[in-house]
Simulated scan of single mutants.
Amino acid sequence: MKRIFACLLAAALLLACAGCGAKKSGESGEEKTLTGTLDEVKDFMFVVTDDNGDSYALTFEGGAPEGLAEQEVGDRVTVTYTGELSVVDAFTGQVLSVKAAK
């Protein structure tokens, strides 16, 4: 009887933990773009202001994203990223590339 109870308890624990590995709703894998003016560049982040005047701080880890080193403050750029951008909340995603806007 103890073995059956232990197996049932283990199965319940596995089912309860199954959802823990799911993606958060803000961590979409879909690629998106943002076009605007590069306002600031630091070792861990950069700021882009779009045509509506909204500024977005995009953070990165493990080195600058592809193409950022070729851009200068004041340049018009297109940023390709995954995740969610917000004017007030921290960036949740990954910057894939930064290129000169057309």
Results as ranks from 00 to 15, higher is better:
60 F>E: 00
102 K>C: 01
100 A>P: 06
63 G>Y: 09
93 G>E: 04
29 G>F: 05
100 A>W: 03
9 L>H: 02
75 D>H: 07
44 F>P: 00
58 L>R: 00
6 A>T: 05
35 T>W: 05
77 V>Y: 00
64 A>W: 02
15 L>R: 03
20 C>I: 13
76 R>H: 09
14 L>Q: 02
20 C>G: 14
40 E>H: 14
88 V>N: 08
59 T>L: 07
54 D>S: 10
71 Q>V: 08
76 R>L: 08
55 S>W: 05
98 V>Y: 04
29 G>W: 03
89 D>R: 13
99 K>Q: 12
78 T>M: 07
13 L>M: 13
57 A>C: 06
62 G>E: 12
56 Y>R: 00
1 M>R: 10
4 I>Y: 07
84 E>Q: 14
56 Y>P: 01
43 D>C: 01
40 E>G: 05
88 V>P: 00
46 F>K: 00
13 L>P: 01
99 K>P: 03
52 N>T: 11
38 L>N: 00
72 E>Y: 04
32 K>E: 03
91 F>S: 06
28 S>V: 10
10 A>M: 10
7 C>Q: 10
96 L>V: 12
72 E>T: 12
85 L>R: 07
46 F>S: 00
16 A>E: 04
16 A>G: 09
49 T>S: 11
25 S>D: 13
8 L>M: 15
93 G>A: 09
100 A>Y: 04
102 K>S: 14
11 A>F: 15
67 G>H: 04
81 Y>F: 14
58 L>Y: 02
34 L>A: 04
96 L>M: 12
35 T>P: 14
92 T>F: 05
89 D>A: 11
75 D>E: 07
80 T>Q: 06
47 V>K: 07
56 Y>T: 00
82 T>D: 05
12 A>R: 06
71 Q>W: 04
74 G>E: 10
84 E>I: 10
25 S>F: 09
71 Q>Y: 03
47 V>R: 08
57 A>V: 08
19 G>V: 05
92 T>V: 14
37 T>N: 13
97 S>H: 03
